[in-house]
Simulated scan of single mutants.
Amino acid sequence: MHTQSSVTKEIRSKVRNIRRELPHEQRLKAEHGIYQQIKKHPKVSSAKHIAIFLSFDGELNTKPIIEYFWQQKKSIFIPIIHPFNNDHMFFLRYDEQTELTRNRFGILQPKLDVRNIIPYKKLDIIFTPLVAFDERNYRIGMGRGYYDRLLAGYQQTDIYPIGLAFTCQKISYIPNQPWDVQLPEIINA
């Protein structure tokens, strides 16, 4: 008998491999489609403070999106794992001069500087990474629950979370737990 967590681990492993093996031309075409959707998105156009992740493990390349946001004079923030509480993350301002370091998972993040922290409730949009998603906009992340904890109760704030993914990451159904956050939108191509 499969437990829910073993099913989730199976999905995570399978979809990460599919994402990593996405042919280069197909990846570029999908990324272009996603970038175009972001550029035309009314909530993105009006946003001032945007959180977005730095790509890792075959995720959508966020560098062109970040550069577009800088051109649009938007303030960009990148998640970092809390140095004293490994179950939480917060966001630091990110610009062309920001020094990056690798966290314990090997993911690039800004070097900690408390002057660059933004209270997450001041963010307008949080672009969330994901491994897999379904029709209902439930997502499977990397398994640590950072975004589910962060976004719990986001409906009581002005934050608008948006998932970013390739269409090949979509599956029919994700078995969700009560603490899993259903995103209002997932942009994919």
Rank of each mutant, 00 (worst) to 15 (best):
K122H: 15
Q4I: 15
Q36L: 14
Q155P: 01
L164K: 04
Q169E: 08
N85C: 10
T167H: 12
V181N: 06
N188K: 04
Y173T: 10
R27F: 10
F127C: 05
F90A: 12
Q4H: 03
P119W: 07
H24N: 12
E185C: 06
R104I: 07
F53I: 04
Y120L: 04
K63T: 15
R149V: 02
K39W: 08
P175Q: 08
E31H: 13
R136F: 05
N176C: 07
T8K: 10
Y146E: 09
Y160L: 10
L100E: 01
K29T: 14
Q71A: 11
D158A: 13
I80W: 06
T167V: 10
S45D: 06
L112F: 15
L108W: 14
H82K: 01
Y147N: 01
A165C: 06
T3H: 04
M1V: 11
T8Y: 01
Y68A: 09
I11V: 07
K74V: 00
Q71M: 11
F90S: 09
E185I: 08
G163D: 02
V7P: 00
K43P: 00
D158Y: 01
Q4C: 07
S13R: 10
L54E: 06
G143N: 05
Y146Q: 10
W179A: 04
A47M: 05
R12M: 03
K73P: 02
K9I: 00
H82M: 02
L130E: 01
E185H: 06
G33L: 13
I162S: 07
R149L: 09
R19L: 11
M1Y: 04
H32C: 05
I81D: 03
K29P: 01
N85W: 09
I187M: 10
V114D: 13
T101D: 03
Q4E: 14
Q177D: 14
P175F: 03
V114I: 15
E31A: 11
I107D: 11
Q156K: 12
M1D: 10
Q156E: 14
I65G: 00
S6Y: 05
G141Q: 01
L112V: 15
I162C: 13
I65W: 02
I159A: 00
G163R: 01
A51C: 03
I18E: 05
N61M: 07
I52L: 02
A30P: 00
I50T: 03
A132G: 02
S55V: 00
P42K: 13
Y35M: 14
L60T: 14
I171M: 04
L123V: 08
V114M: 11
F84K: 15
H24C: 08
H2T: 12
M1C: 10
F53S: 04
E59L: 09
K40N: 14
D57R: 11
Q177S: 12
L100S: 04
Q156I: 01
D148M: 03
I140W: 04
P161T: 07
Q109V: 11
N61Q: 09
K48L: 12
C168P: 05
S75I: 05
N103Q: 13
C168W: 02
Y173L: 13
H32W: 00
I78T: 13
P64D: 08
L130T: 04
S75M: 09
T167Y: 08
Y160M: 09
L92Y: 09
N61I: 11
Y154M: 12
D87T: 13
K170R: 15
L108V: 00
R115E: 15
H24W: 08
K121I: 09
P23R: 01
N85H: 13
K122A: 14
Q177K: 12
